[in-house]
Design a protein around this nucleic acid. Sequence first.
DNA 1: CTAATTTTGTACAGATCATTACAGAAACAA
DNA 2: TTGTTTCTGTAATGATCTGTACAAAATTAG
Lengths: 193, 193
Amino acid sequence: MSGRPREFNDLSVINSAMEAFWVKGFEECSTEDLCKSTGLGRGSLYNAFGSKQNLYKQALLRYFELGHQANMEILDRPGPIKDRLRALMEAVIDIDLNDPVRRGCLAINAAIERGGKDPEIARAVAHHFSSLEQALCHIMELGQRSGEISSNRPAMQLARFFRCSFYGLRVLSKVEQDRGALMDVVETTLSAL
Amino acid sequence: MSGRPREFNDLSVINSAMEAFWVKGFEECSTEDLCKSTGLGRGSLYNAFGSKQNLYKQALLRYFELGHQANMEILDRPGPIKDRLRALMEAVIDIDLNDPVRRGCLAINAAIERGGKDPEIARAVAHHFSSLEQALCHIMELGQRSGEISSNRPAMQLARFFRCSFYGLRVLSKVEQDRGALMDVVETTLSAL
DNA sequence: CTAATTTTGTACAGATCATTACAGAAACAA
DNA sequence: TTGTTTCTGTAATGATCTGTACAAAATTAG
């Protein structure tokens, strides 16, 4: 049964691995990098997680969890709905433009880097994307009931529209220097709702 | 002066390399892969292009050239401006969803994979992004003059808004199965102009 | 205590990586 | 012809890659 106990906490190791994959990307993040960032030796890493791919998957799921929490924290705030949607966009603009290494969004990075090669990753990212879609759809319905959001279009369509702008912003912010160019998108997107 | 002549055409080699980088990504595309896809030996490749990085840069510039041409071909068509903008979005949706390996947009792939690591790549992609911005701004101005596009907002702001949706679509189409979810974005984006 | 079990660190394996060295091939110049 | 230059293919180089083998360490059970 129980032998020598683990000297690490699985979750904090996954958190560290997530950071490493986030900064370096899947391919460019070596197992050596992962050992350094997690503090584990190769033996422990492979014993606990089996492979680099598997650790990446767990790191990605962890990112989804944290990202969803962060998004919901903003969307569930009190106050006008458009203010919350604006806050969501402005939050990622702030994060992206202030990040010196421009890690961007790990979900998008995973979709681009691994989506075409690992169907399991593609499915996981699609699921994460649709969880944001669902949350946004719910918010849009609330706004339509209160009259804050136009009822000309189905809430789901508005949610998909907003989500697309949202992810588009995160791509642009990978290379964009001009914050105004991103804020223009925020204004126009919100005024379309 | 002149010695043995080259047995290949530089441009078609760059085209082949572009395809290889597009499918595999920078990291995962080995020099062996590049030799296979271009038909050149290692000696010739390195003699002509110096390094994998440099070949990638040239392939990327070539993609920008082709992509810009393809976009302008659609935007310069006769007919209503919103029809042209719709055609632009629908074209990439068709391409992306019909591609079994989901290569997506090489400019976005480069921004995500290399943007944070190679400032030269980041600058090149930003320049490419802004060339689309400029073309869209011009189209928006035309539409505003003819009354096809709302004049409530500056043409540049509308161009940036459209461009963000456009690139957002290409990210979503990396993992999206539901074409309707993407078409919803097209409809909502166009109706906001 | 001993036996069993699991973790840990290190060393290593085998493959693959980008790049270079270099000899022969193919052109031109004289 | 001979010399010069450039290109081509092959072989090698040294680094780095993911993953494994394995013995020592640390725990529980009996």
